[in-house]
Design a protein around this nucleic acid. Structure first.
Lengths: 250, 250
DNA sequence: TTCGTCGTTTCACCTTCCGGAACAGCATTC
DNA sequence: GAATGCTGTTCCGGAAGGTGAAACGACGAA
């Protein structure tokens, strides 16, 4: 399926930071390594479905709303957002920090929605972004039910890539962290994903009792000492439980 | 570009309401009119990019997070959401009705984001949904700068399709409505899209002073008499202006 | 057991995509 | 102002690659 594979590569290029919104045919050809004529043909195939559109002024191409429309039809995304948003808003009000909602996809957590704090200093992660599971509170919450063998099947060989000096890089270390999550009901991230950022996360379950998502509160380390994390954790856990209840859990 | 076109048709089928989340290969083949083997090959091409995934329990296929990720990289979507969300939240608090954010794509308004009221009776429109421009307050706000000739270029021949008995179906009628929008600064929808639903919308402009989006407040007609609409309108206009300012307008 | 249907695989045919090269239009340069 | 270098776009012969009817193995229902 060469043609489809190339088509997706063009889409991914347009979605990449490298493209920064608009790209010319030649840029895409260079970025993907495909011949210019091929890229142009693919773009023409996308246009009628509104996956891409051409800026009539510059002649350059950009992603368009057709792909946004399809992307928001991923099963669960609407229900999750609707169930979670009110709880996230009140959690943001309580904690005065940014609240994130994510699901698992492979070895990444995909950010589905967020509610920003109105603090001046805050973590800016875009919706749709990916974060490595092994380096985040969201990841620990999403994987909290996984045993050592299941984890080994998800992640590659050790040591796992270090995002910061504090990132957990071993199966044993991560399994111990998950044990703590199961015991306490919440997960933490002590500057394991980004230096100076701490998080507290909790798992969300659906009617089959399986963990299908997670929420987290994240803030700069100076506003998030260890005791503050413990203070916020019950609110995070409660919010996650409330969302789970809306999804039929409990 | 036959293969790409078919690939997109498969994606669109999986995104359609008909698919309801999960679909088998045979369902997709029937729904798209494509041979079963072809559908299967396309699905296998999508998998490594995480555009679709297979439910290991049922064997059926569903959209996955890769396409969500790409969809949220459509230029403007992140900036718009971030600029608009706080204003939308306070507008929702003031009006106690659902607040919508949309952009134009062809003859449709695409719903980008929304903040739900906590009223029991409320309009439920999913993010990514499309509404016809000519039947909504959002549409009138998005097109408010268009003259008669420009409108004729956007829409097809008259009469335009009626969504409800009140839907404006003629170019002249719609142009008059836009004249009112330009005069008052806000647009209205008197059960033109859905019986028993009224809306008030206002345009959002970017740094080039062009209308790039619109917000609206929508509620059931019994809570939205004509005087209430006039009462809410200034808040809607002010919110739209605040968002525009964040985007560099004025 | 038998039947039906599921997702998956095969393979020879031939459609359809491929991509270097040429094209027209616009900017910048000398 | 002609030359140069870019842009997006088009053309066409060659062959790579997609196509899809039919067969397969596995599962579940009758």
């Amino acid at each position: 399926m060469q043609a489809v594979d190339r088509a997706i590569r063009v889409l991914l290029y347009l979605a990449s930071d490298e493209a920064r919104g608009e790209s010319g045919v030649s840029d895409i050809a260079k970025g993907t390594g495909l011949p210019k004529a091929t890229v142009h043909r693919l773009l023409r195939a996308f246009s009628p479905h509104r996956f891409v559109e051409q800026n009539p002024e510059t002649g350059k191409y950009r992603l368009s709303w057709g792909v946004f429309e399809v992307g928001n039809k991923v099963p669960g995304v609407i229900g999750l957002k609707m169930a979670a948003r009110p709880e996230m808003a009140s959690l943001c009000e309580i904690s005065r920090e940014t609240v994130n909602l994510a699901v698992r996809d492979g070895t990444d957590a995909v950010l589905i929605d967020k509610v920003d704090s109105n603090q001046l200093l805050r973590l800016e992660l875009e919706i749709g972004r990916r974060e490595p599971l092994h380096a985040t509170a969201l990841g620990k919450a999403l994987l909290c039910e996984f045993g050592k063998d299941a984890l080994a099947g998800v992640f590659g060989p050790e040591p796992w890539p270090a995002v910061t000096p504090s990132t957990i890089q071993t199966l044993a270390g991560f399994a111990a962290a998950l044990e703590a999550v199961r015991r306490d009901g919440y997960a933490t991230d002590n500057e394991e994903f980004s230096v100076n950022i701490r998080c507290v996360g909790a798992p969300i379950r659906n009617h089959t009792h399986r963990v299908i998502a997670a929420i987290s509160v994240s803030g700069p380390a100076h506003r998030f000492p260890a005791d503050r994390a413990k203070e916020v954790a019950p609110a995070v856990v409660q919010a996650a439980k409330n969302i789970s209840k809306l999804l039929g859990h409990g």
